[in-house]
């Protein structure tokens, strides 16, 4: 369910860009961070086979995130306003690299990158949320995108509990980062459920 929600979020994002011929309201910085997240985590595509499903999803997430970046940078460039997308990503990249160096399952390059990508994914939404807060409102379709994206990691949580009891497996790095990631959406979810899903416009209180 988490993966499908993630998949759906990207389909909604592409649908929004296509139908409005615009990437207004979408943070380029957040999208660029996702490319970095997928490239650093899914490098194992080349040596660690899990399943056809796993491989297909990895390829899709890398390809679609690069494609979104292309759409924003070239095809719909005039519709992107960098002056409201001002979050400093350095504040995220540095700490995530440090977290990757401290918390990892083996002190080797690919494992550090994996951990880095997990932490970075947890906070990659911040430029987007920061932008949302600056503009104070969003198109409904954009909020559906964010809701699906936020729900994705939240839906992993029951699965982690299931695996803890069922398979006796726990991945503390993914769990802690996943909880942080989900937590960052709580404010957004509150407004989404109380306004957008009640048919009102997404507007933040002044």
């Amino acid at each position: 369910a988490g993966d499908i929600s993630h998949l759906a979020s990207i389909v909604i994002l592409l649908h929004k860009i296509y139908t409005s011929h615009s990437c207004r309201g979408i943070s380029f910085k957040t999208q660029a961070l996702y490319v970095l997240v997928f490239l650093t985590r899914y490098l194992d595509l080349f040596w660690h086979w899990v399943s056809l499903y796993n491989t297909a999803m990895k390829v899709f997430f890398i390809a679609s995130s690069v494609y979104v970046l292309y759409l924003m940078k070239y095809k719909y460039r005039p519709t992107h306003d960098p002056s409201i997308d001002t979050f400093k990503v350095e504040y995220l990249l540095g700490p995530c690299l440090i977290l990757g160096l401290i918390f990892n399952y083996e002190f080797k390059f690919t494992e550090i990158l994996w951990s880095f990508s997990i932490w970075l994914e947890a906070v990659a939404i911040l430029p987007q949320l920061f932008m949302l807060q600056r503009t104070g409102e969003a198109e409904a379709i954009t909020t559906h995108y964010l809701a699906a994206l936020g729900a994705y990691r939240a839906l992993y949580i029951p699965n982690w509990i299931w695996r803890y009891f069922g398979d006796n497996v726990v991945d503390p790095i993914a769990v802690v980062a996943g909880l942080v990631q989900t937590g960052l959406y709580l404010d957004f979810f509150y407004v989404y459920f109380t306004k957008v899903l009640q048919g009102q416009k997404f507007e933040l209180p002044a």
Binding site: D3, H6, D44, H48, V50, S51, N54, M57, K58, F61, Y105, E106, E111, W114, Y156, V169, D171, A174
Partner: peptide, 10 residues
């Protein structure tokens, strides 16, 4: 496969 954890999630 001797990965310390599963890494089988996305």
């Amino acid at each position: 496969d001797d990965l310390p954890v599963f890494h089988d999630e996305l």
